[in-house]
């Protein structure tokens, strides 16, 4: 080895294509998925949320009379199939009034999740449109829109929603709408901040220099990089909306017993806190699970969707 000179090395036959890096090219989404899977809490959050969604969707469908009262079953033990052979899935047994607590819980979860997701759709839509316009246009447009945000923020959200619900009645849709049109401010600020910095990004300037139209710049060059914060805001928004709805129903301004949400269950349970404390327990646990899962999921997605993050080599 020692008597080998530099010339020997350079005279070695060199295959020109040897240097080419032949590792497999992965697409953005493949990379994102890899990063997501590495994030253990996020995966747990995603699974929890998925299980809750599926259970909430399926259980009330397969069980007849999922939220009905049957006084004969008062305090009956947990059972999956009743004595007549019907599927009842009463995994948590029956309450004093003979309500199948598990199926009732799942029906309420369905209502809560639906409100959460639908409200977030509205929040994200309004937030992205207003934030994008403000951030892209800048100047007085930005100023005007941000003052609107300030005004919206200065009003206490819960009271606006209560007034809204009092005025139009407490249906699922009025509550979704009420949460949606009071909750978009944070999303708008996030998107605006992101757009303000992206506007100055070199590649946006480069796109402009290549003759891209404002529409194209916003949709192709600014929205995708801004996606990560939007997704995080959305997943946090789901948690927030579910909690907000629960608070509303708990206070008695939300949905009535006919389409009970988790908040409604808590409201009812609170009355019997002394006699049946376990009634509070299960809706609370589901609520906490939703909030935690949504947060972890958002966290994981933020890391996964950031194209600047690399998959650590292992």
């Amino acid at each position: 080895m020692a008597d080998r000179t530099y010339d020997d090395v350079t005279q070695l036959p060199v295959d020109d294509t040897e240097d080419i890096d032949r590792t497999e090219v992965r697409s953005y989404w493949q990379l994102a998925r890899r990063r997501f899977v590495r994030h253990r809490l996020a995966v747990i959050g995603a699974i929890t949320l998925a299980v809750l969604i599926i259970a909430a969707a399926v259980v009330p469908l397969v069980v007849e009379n999922a939220t009905g009262v049957d006084i004969n079953k008062s305090f009956a033990a947990a059972e999956i199939v009743d004595e007549e052979g019907n599927l009842v899935l009463a995994l948590l047994g029956y309450s004093r009034t003979g309500i199948n607590m598990f199926t009732q819980l799942m029906a309420a979860t369905a209502t809560s999740l639906m409100i959460g997701f639908a409200a977030v759709l509205i929040i994200v839509f309004i937030g992205v449109v207003i934030g994008a316009v403000a951030g892209y246009a800048g100047g007085w447009v930005d100023n005007l829109l941000m003052r609107v945000v300030d005004i919206a923020l200065s009003m206490p959200g819960l009271f606006i929603i209560i007034a809204f619900v009092a005025f139009w009645g407490a249906s699922i849709w009025t509550i979704i709408l009420a949460i949606g049109i009071t909750g978009w401010t944070t999303a708008a600020r996030l998107v605006r901040a992101e757009f303000l910095s992206l506007r100055e990004a070199d590649y946006v300037q480069a796109a402009r220099a290549l003759g891209a139209s404002p529409r194209r710049i916003i949709l192709r060059h600014m929205l995708p990089p801004a996606l990560a914060p939007i997704i995080v805001a959305a997943s946090l928004g789901v948690a927030d909306s579910v909690v907000l709805e629960a608070a509303l129903s708990f206070l008695g301004f939300g949905i009535g017993a006919e389409q009970a949400s988790l908040g409604t269950l808590l409201n009812v349970a609170f009355e019997y806190l002394n006699r049946e404390p376990y009634l509070v327990l299960f809706p609370s646990i589901v609520l906490i699970l939703i909030v935690l899962a949504a947060n972890f999921l958002g966290d994981g997605m933020r890391d996964a969707l950031d194209p600047r993050q690399r998959v650590e080599q292992q």
Partner: peptide, 26 residues
């Protein structure tokens, strides 16, 4: 009209190659 000219008749390359490409597209 200017948008049609940019990138077609006149192109520009910038100082910072590290940041002048959009990170989310190939």
């Amino acid at each position: 009209e200017m948008r049609d000219i940019r990138g077609d008749q006149v192109s520009m390359i910038f100082q910072e190659p590290m940041t002048s490409l959009n990170p989310v597209f190939t």
